[in-house]
Design a protein around this nucleic acid. Structure first.
Lengths: 130, 130
DNA sequence: CCATCATATGAACGATTGCTCATATGTTCA
DNA sequence: TGAACATATGAGCAATCGTTCATATGATGG
């Protein structure tokens, strides 16, 4: 889940990168932009968060769980995928705190951990429908 | 492997993916879930849309453009990345209709194509801050 | 305890991603 | 027209992803 970095280490300070003659952004604006962009840690968390929604299997799982809590094999059946594939994805979803689970005998039930998720999904849907 | 009778017969149309004996989801619910989950085409579009936000470089670009329109080399400078890397990502962002561009002489200015984007970003931020 | 069922997990593999490097395209100006 | 600059793009490569397969863990009931 790491981003690959080039040899950015070489060019320490801003401005050394890869200059062009055109300066359309003056220092003042540049400062402001650098201030507005969230810090690296947050950006990585944010990207990691959205990455969860960037896979059809995971999105389908989330939509299914939107209806009702469900056990792994129910999900596997409904989504027509192997138990293993579903389980792996659920683990990921749990790590990202998007789902929670509870055990009941042999069965483990998964459910959404947050009402937010529905909002995010429909926000995305709204955007692609136009 | 042999199936025993029971409600196994009821889930024929789904296919024989990988059944378990536990039936926690009855047919009625299953039908509803299958109805609620958007169709494949839409899900792929949705996942593709979120995938855009699933990379720190792209998110940083979007945050930068949130402040002001900008040319490729300004972005490269500010984000400390090569012109090529930025250009590749901008192309992707444009394909996904998240940014638009206008040419002015040699320079190409990019800007967000949609106010929605800010909403999505802050929705995500809101979620990871807790 | 042992067999069985539900779930979890590690390794492996092909597909995809995001970068770099080299080079092509487009625009301006002398 | 050609040099200089801004941007775009194709190929190649290492990293990452999502699945499968085999197997481990955990719970239940004989």
């Amino acid at each position: 889940m790491m981003e690959q970095k080039g040899d950015a280490g070489l060019r320490e300070e801003i401005g050394e990168a890869e200059q062009c003659e055109c300066i359309h952004v003056h220092d003042e604006l540049k400062e402001r932009i650098l201030r507005e962009i969230p810090e690296d840690g947050k950006l990585e968390d944010l990207a990691a968060f959205f990455k969860v929604f960037g896979d059809t299997t995971r999105v389908r799982i989330l939509y299914a769980l939107l209806c009702s809590e469900m056990c792994v094999c129910d999900l596997a059946q409904i989504l027509q995928m192997t138990q293993s594939a579903i389980s792996h994805q659920l683990r990921f979803l749990k790590q990202m705190a998007l789902v929670k689970n509870r055990r009941e005998g042999k069965t483990v039930f998964y459910s959404l951990s947050d009402g937010h998720i529905s909002t995010i999904l429909s926000q995305g849907m709204e955007h692609i429908e136009e």
